[in-house]
Nucleic acid binder design. Structure first.
Lengths: 207, 207
DNA sequence: GGAAAAATCCCCCTAAAGAGGGATTGACCA
DNA sequence: TGGTCAATCCCTCTTTAGGGGGATTTTTCC
């Protein structure tokens, strides 16, 4: 029987130990490693090439979202399951956007974890049962605009507090150009000023 | 060698398993039971009479605080160590008031748990408060400015996308007043425009 | 090779924001 | 009872942002 190789990433030792204990009770799973941060995770990835990475979203230094981005870029075949407490649900959409195949709450039972792994490894999307996305959160996912690479770039600079002329200088383009992109951003986000723009951008994890 | 009998109470299976795994690595500890809620805990208490109960604060139905009250009433000799995520720190004082002998964060390491148990069983008070805050949280706490109630109010309206005149109208004050508050906000957040302001405000959870 | 999408640039005009000042009132408090 | 702080209000001036146009040049992709 082929065992699913799983790597667990979390900065809390207790979660790491708990996950390992629960995963070891699932017969088709083999825990290949435990990482306390994204750096360790990337090391262990290279060494073991797991099938699935279960990662906490909220970690210091490098978040689970950033980690997911890196993993998907270097090893697109690896499935990623995001994990968080119920207090941090706003990040789910970001994880999904980064290619996560599932979402687990830390309150998950052994059965839920098992199901998440099975679902993810069969190329489907698993969502923690106890997880009812609020209407607003649903909207967040569906309404998040698609930005061009230039727009993303400019959005980040706006969020950093740079003005149009400053951004123009940095990007070696005309202030008019920056202004055009900025207007497009406002349109795409359906807001009418910078405050609304940045609020959404932060919530969507784009800055 | 006498082993310290420990009962763990938490509604999250993962924490329960993780705690057990970590406690089993401590040689002077014997885990006598795992309970998923206060009812189970009271049952197991009767059967095993542990020396220490490690309990989550935030549990459905009966909270850790209520559980502590009951335990202290019926078995005053049992030591109680409260446990929570860093999001729930406001309950600490209540736990202490109910006779808890220690306080652990769920991000605690094996060493911290060990120390908490030793401290508690020697009738002293263990606190893991300041220890394990992440860098980001530390920063958030130290850099997060203190706002007056009016400033908070106006900050939220700015984030909603309202302009100064619109805010002034809503709050029945002069646009000059709103402008003053807005300037104070920029100063307090140490940014120089709305983009930077809102970015931080969202990150600090103020909007 | 040609259409679509992205990126670039330009103009006008008005509203809003930001950087400087400063002043007054009332509340709380040591 | 004097000091601090919050909240209010006022003024000037410059820069930025936002709403409305439109146009051209690169990429990208089928």
């Amino acid at each position: 029987m082929y065992k699913l190789k799983v790597l667990v990433v979390d900065d809390h030792p207790m979660v790491l130990e708990g996950m390992q204990a629960m995963l070891s009770q699932i017969d088709f799973v083999l825990v290949t490693g435990l990482a306390r941060n994204a750096y360790e995770a990337m090391e262990l990835l290279k060494a073991d090439m797991p099938d699935v990475v279960i990662t906490d979203i909220n970690m210091p230094e490098i978040s689970g979202i950033e980690l997911a981005t890196k993993i998907k870029k270097e090893y697109p075949v690896i499935k990623i399951i995001a994990m968080s407490t119920f207090n941090e649900r706003s990040y789910i959409s970001q994880m999904i956007a980064q290619g996560a195949s599932g979402y687990l709450l830390k309150s998950a039972s052994k059965e839920e974890i098992e199901e998440a792994l099975q679902t993810a490894s069969s190329n489907k999307l698993y969502m923690s049962l106890s997880l009812e996305l609020s209407r607003k959160e649903q909207q967040d996912i569906t309404n998040r605009p698609t930005l061009t690479s230039r727009e993303k770039e400019i959005l980040i600079l706006i969020a950093e507090g740079y003005t149009n002329p400053q951004i123009a200088e940095q990007l070696f383009v005309s202030p008019y150009t920056v202004d055009s992109h900025r207007k497009n951003l406002l349109t795409k986000f359906a807001v009418n000023n910078t405050a609304g723009l940045i609020k959404l951008a932060v919530k969507y994890g784009m800055v």
